[in-house]
Design a protein around this nucleic acid. Structure first.
Lengths: 142, 142
DNA sequence: TTTTAATTGCAAGTCACTTGCATGTATGGT
DNA sequence: ACCATACATGCAAGTGACTTGCAATTAAAA
């Protein structure tokens, strides 16, 4: 539906999503591009201090609604967000329980597991969550 | 550490966990045994109306702390709980996006995927989350 | 430009818990 | 069986992460 975020500028993304190119949205997109990995609204708002948190919440929600971004639930209370990857780059995360370091894992090899893991009581599976939690190398040295 | 919940009575579970056998805890354990699949505190409290929700929250937390129960995060805002399965019965869930039906999947076949999916930047992975979301058979007929 | 519908900011509200504290009670010692 | 006390409970209030209402702005269509 959308070209990858990588080959579209922020105005194009908003236009395609039928969202107005406001100062706030453009600032948010600019800052989000600087972040690696799934971020919290709190973190993004720290980078966009000029606008209200509510605006950050609402705009992120709009971007999720149109498919530009996706929501990720890791262990903590806050939801996290990241640019929605296309099917071919669908991926998961490994989270360090000690320092919170989040790594994006290269590729999703889950499809073959669907039929094995899923029961006969389901007509279709259209989503799944797979996250790993452990200790990263640098934390294991401390 | 603990015998399976199946072959211990509620007094034994609490004794082993060094938790006092209060009226509330015994009532909670009794009701929890009637529930299939991961439940919310709200649901359990509806079955234990005689006590305060705070007590339900606190006791569930204690049971998680001693390993009798485990926390499961599905898509909704509330945490869910279920009796902590032993290693050999570690499992995941399939959730119907339409009616909320939750099925426990028979067995976890994830271990072989750990090394494939996880990066070289992690010393160890000691936990993972795998949940499927889709439409169950009966909802697909509606 | 002018119009107008989308967007924003501020304040207030909600939901799912969590904490403080005074009262109550299970259990270990006598 | 009784007492002492550390653990539990209930009620009220607090917190964190959002969500909603509404009047004031502002992007963009006319």
């Amino acid at each position: 539906m959308y070209g990858s975020v990588d080959n579209m500028n922020d105005h194009q993304i908003l236009a395609t999503a039928k969202l107005r190119a406001t100062t706030q949205r453009l600032a948010m997109l600019k800052e989000m591009r600087k972040i690696h990995g799934p971020f919290t609204v709190e973190r993004l708002h720290k980078m966009c201090r000029s606008m209200d948190v509510v605006t950050v919440y609402r705009n992120i929600k709009s971007l999720v609604a149109v498919g530009v971004m996706r929501e990720v639930r890791l262990k903590d209370a806050s939801l996290r967000y990241e640019f929605s990857p296309g099917e071919e780059t669908h991926h998961h995360h490994a989270v360090c329980n000690s320092c919170g370091y989040i790594e994006e894992l290269s590729e999703c090899k889950m499809h073959s597991l669907f039929s094995q893991q899923t029961s006969k009581k389901f007509k279709s599976i259209d989503e799944h969550v797979l996250e790993f939690f452990g200790t990263c190398n640098s934390c294991s040295k401390k």
